[in-house]
Structures are given as C-alpha cells and as structure tokens.
Amino acid sequence: MTIRHHPPDDFLTGFAAGTLDLGQHVAIATHLTGCSRCRRTVRLMEHVGGSVLAEMQPTPMSDDALARVEARMDQPVMPAARIAPPRPGALDDLPELPAFVRRYAVSSWKWIAPGLRFRPIQLPTDSPTRVFLLQSAPGTAMLDHTHTGQEMTCVLRGGFQHRAGQYGPGDFDLGDSSRHHDVVVDAGEACLCLVAMHGKLRLSGLLGAIVQPFLRL
C-alpha cells in the first residue's frame, strides 16, 4: 500500500499532544493504523512532548502530596480501573480501523443519494466532530457540496479522485470551507471511507436541495 496523502503536521502534533477532539482523534488514528511514516512522526512528537515537560518550570506540590500517593501505592487497583475484557466489536469486519474504533457502536446504514450511503459511528463521549462511514458506488460523482467546518476523510477501500489527486486505501484527505470538492469515485470498486466532520455539510444543486432536509450530516 503506497500512501500518498498524509494529514497535515498540525494534526499529527495535536494527536501526540492530546489536543484533538475525539472525532478528529479517530480519523488520525485510522490513518496511523495504515501509515508507518506518520506513526514515526507521532512517536517523535511524543518525545518532543517529553522534552517540553522536562524543560518546564516546576510548580511546588502540596505538602502531603507524596504521602497521599504512598498511602495509595499498596492498595489494590479499583475494579473500574481494570481494562475491560475484549468483546466482539461492531466493526470487527474492518481491520483497517484501529482496535478501539472497531469496538464502538454503529448505527445502521442510511441512504443519502443514489450510490451513496453512510453509517454513523457512535462515539462514547460528546465530540464536536461526528464520525461516519461513507460508502460510494463505483463511478459515483459526489454531490456538489461545501463545508462549514473541516472534514477529514480516510480511505479504507477503493478510491476516488478530485483536483488534488488520486486517493486510495490509507490516504487522508482534508476538506475545509476553502476547498470545493469535485470528487469522482473510481470505477470498478465501491469506495469506503471513514469521515470525521466538524461543522455542517452543505449540499448544493437540485438533488442536494431535495435530500438536505432529511439528512443530519
């Protein structure tokens, strides 16, 4: 698998720093699952995080802080703190996804337009970024649309192209309000993507005007 399109550095840094919202985190983690280059970058940035920590000015701890920790060191770990036993994941048929995402609950597939359907992934905590799977039939031309916020797309299977190039499995695409999408799905194979969408999607054109009221995209 040759990955040609990677997330911008600020998202890889944000992932390592722990400052992304959960929906964005899911999209970056999905890309990392298939991309050793970006995994190396994240690991590098975690070392940078360690260096930043090491260089900080210390803030004195409360007087009894060490004693309070020592008092808890011999206590057995609380049941809530044990890692839950692995259970079958709703998305186990998608090994392209990170393990923690495969365990999330998913809604059923929903129809958007001819050749196009989506399946929301239910995040365990509120996030301003929603995540869903998007499946497009071979040769589908995506509806004209614009974004009010950022949209991250991770290609899981199949591929598409738009004016910035050809996208295949493992590739990452970032759309925002400054870009107009003119996406055409490759012929021959359905395209499955994980999409993390911040803000709203505005469909344009006649079909968009018809389906928009029924979609909570």
Binding site: A17, G18, E46, H47, G49, G50, V52, L53, A54
Partner: peptide, 12 residues
C-alpha cells in the same frame, strides 16, 4: 520510550 516521553504520555 524515553522516561520523560513515557511520563508525558501518562500525564497527557
């Protein structure tokens, strides 16, 4: 992992 990077990830 380095010690400080490891502790950083726990804190993060």
């Amino acid at each position: 992992a380095g010690a400080t990077a490891w502790i950083f990830t726990i804190a993060r």
